[in-house]
Amino acid sequence: MSQPTHDPAKPLLEVRQLEQRFDVSGSFFDRLRFSGGRISAPRRIVHAVNGVSLAVKRGEVLGIVGESGCGKSTLAKTIVKLHEPTGGQILIEGEDITHHDFTRMRPVRKKLQMIFQDPYASLNPRQKVRDIIMEPFLESQSAPVPDLAERALALLAKVGLGVEHLDRYPHQFSGGQRQRIGIARALSVQPDLIIADEPVSALDVSIQAQILNLLMDLKDEFGFSYLFITHDLSVVRYISDRIGVMYLGFMVETGPTRTIFAEPKHPYTQALLAAAPQLGTKLGPASEQVRGEVPSAIDLPRGCPFRQRCPLAFARCADERPELRPVGGGQAVACHLSEPATQPAFAAI
């Protein structure tokens, strides 16, 4: 694996060939199969993330977009080490945290925070707001903190809530307000990188805009970076500097937001953009571009993961899995069709 090229500043987050598999076969007895007169006990492995590489620079927003089951959420949770990675490397400011244990992760956790999707499940219903938002901060301190209430208030003010909210419980808030509390919790340790896993998809449209604006305001004020996971193209287009498109656990295309939307190169990206509903345009006739649905991540297809749905698939797609290769302009595509024969270099976004 080639090292990242002449990048002057180390990226804040770098992920190299990350792999995440889950054994879902259960106990030995659950696995027992009887077929054709033979007893076997096959393992069932979900290939959630398959060799994904990416990098997030300081102050940058990297959007990861893809449909359900594409591994984007698992990618996020593996990066914050909610799952132990089964392969590859995770580096924070050059420090390899892939196999850090609990104690060695503690200082790293201050740099790395997460915002969750479900505003109803992401806050402990039995905790008061003041305890929720200060928890990561208190955990990162070794000595008691004197001015706790002032700090909590300042945090709430940053996300547009006030002193009257300090002693309330989560059920007393609307979805949008809860998401603000979740954001305040992530802010409390002043992280460098916030991993946002579908932070607005559970919210009403009018509230989505409020939260997106808030996230941008906070980024401008504190200068941190986002790894922004979403299925919503209009959201990712608005918020991201660069985009990575995932399909079935693979990164199929990466590049600057503008380029991806103007000149998508991967057939899947093209299909995704074509399918996104556009305000005020009538539904066109069925362009039978993409057939069927996402295949199972347990039995990955041979060759290109997208080939069974791809209108342009040809013989080579079934034999050889395309690598993510740069095609110029910061864009990289994992497709045999956009492969200039002369650029064998390994691409990391």
Partner: peptide
């Protein structure tokens, strides 16, 4: 499975605290 427990993990809480503060009351 809920996200508030994951949030506690991301915050670096040791298991003992996660169990007592987050899981037990719920």
């Amino acid at each position: 499975q809920k996200e508030y427990v994951q949030a506690a993990r991301v915050s670096g809480l040791p298991n003992r605290k996660i169990i007592l503060r987050h899981v037990l009351p719920n």
